[in-house]
Design a protein around this nucleic acid. Structure first.
Lengths: 195, 195
DNA sequence: CCTAAAATATACCGATCGGTATTTTGTTAT
DNA sequence: ATAACAAAATACCGATCGGTATATTTTAGG
């Protein structure tokens, strides 16, 4: 890893939580230099513009979530338990112990939806990938009789994502972890009812 | 209504969709003057600062949702049908036929959560009021035997809000109304299972 | 119709915005 | 050790930011 690559990673690591909290328009180059201790010249020596930093920051935040989910999912055996992994992982996004500012998918979706097509495209792909992943899990669950055959994998995927993301919004806004407990309680019951 | 009050309302009406789409940091005073055709002097003759315009815009967007929901709810007789009113109303937020930019509660919650305490306070109140409203509906449903007595009103309220807001995020981002149909399909089944 | 007050427009403020050309510093291979 | 190169810092750019003091226009009451 060259010096430039190291610095690039360093900048992304330091700015990713800021973009996640303040959004694209709300994060200034001054924020970026302050967080990294570097100067504007150095930032622009490693990135073409603010857009590129924002994209890399989103990718970093997304990968951070994905790898944690992947790891925890591999520790579960049943499909239903795999589907419920999101509950434990996203708990950490609410109390702030992981990636300050909440879920990057939700934040960036709202932030970039009507303002930043490039960023929007990245979040869109993330949501569709997520939907496909859950859909395939459900299909596997149907195949091994864990889930009823008449269930719609796409519908289940969308419902789980909606509940998780909506739940994060509520719990983060209110700072009430017991709300997250109640919402995920409904989610557990829902997943249990699938088969 | 004095001239100043008219102008104030006019400014709020014209800027409310912009704040809803671009967020607080993303909406500039130039956006405000462009949308209204007024000058900065006129804006600041009616509002102390950008914050005040943003607050008034949020209040306006929120009231817009609330009154529509209230009206549609009064047309329903059963508690379950009242709970399902959100589905039809929010449909219009996704296709953009009402208040461009999606649900103001969701947008402002994400936008202001970590950046704007005053605005955050307003959204927080909106969500808690919403939760209480659904909670009381559920209690009424329990009282008239429409809903099982062992159901938790607070949990039901939070679950419905989470599904609706999460569903809006997904449907707006993907521009797929069929996704909204699938998610609200789950919501209908959920509400139906309550009693 | 005229005047006083209210409302809007004009012109400007310093600060900050994203971005860049140039210089200085740090690194690395010979 | 030094030359060649890469990387970071400095100093600056025009544009836009939110905000204001002042001048002009519009409104409303007598």
């Amino acid at each position: 890893m060259t010096k430039a690559e190291k610095t690039r990673n360093f900048i992304v690591e330091k700015t990713a939580p800021i973009f996640n909290m303040k959004g694209y328009a709300g994060t200034s180059l001054n924020d970026i230099t302050a967080a990294t201790g570097l100067t504007k010249g150095s930032i622009y020596g490693n990135f073409a513009n603010k857009d590129e930093v924002a994209m890399a920051a989103f990718d970093y935040n997304l990968k951070n979530v994905s790898t944690r989910i992947e790891a925890e999912m591999n520790r579960q055996t049943s499909i239903k338990d795999k589907l419920l992994v999101y509950i434990d992982i996203y708990q950490k996004f609410i109390d702030g112990s992981v990636s300050a500012g909440g879920c990057p998918v939700l934040n960036t979706a709202i932030d970039a939806d009507d303002t930043h097509p490039e960023l929007r495209g990245r979040v869109l792909k993330a949501v569709l990938d997520w939907k496909n992943k859950i859909g395939k899990l459900v299909e596997a669950g149907i195949a091994n009789k864990e889930i009823y055959a008449d269930q719609n994998p796409e519908q289940i995927a969308l419902t789980i994502i909606a509940m998780v993301e909506g739940g994060i919004m509520i719990s983060k806004l209110t700072s009430k972890t017991e709300y997250w407990g109640l919402i995920t309680g409904s989610l557990k019951k829902y997943v249990d009812s699938l088969g």
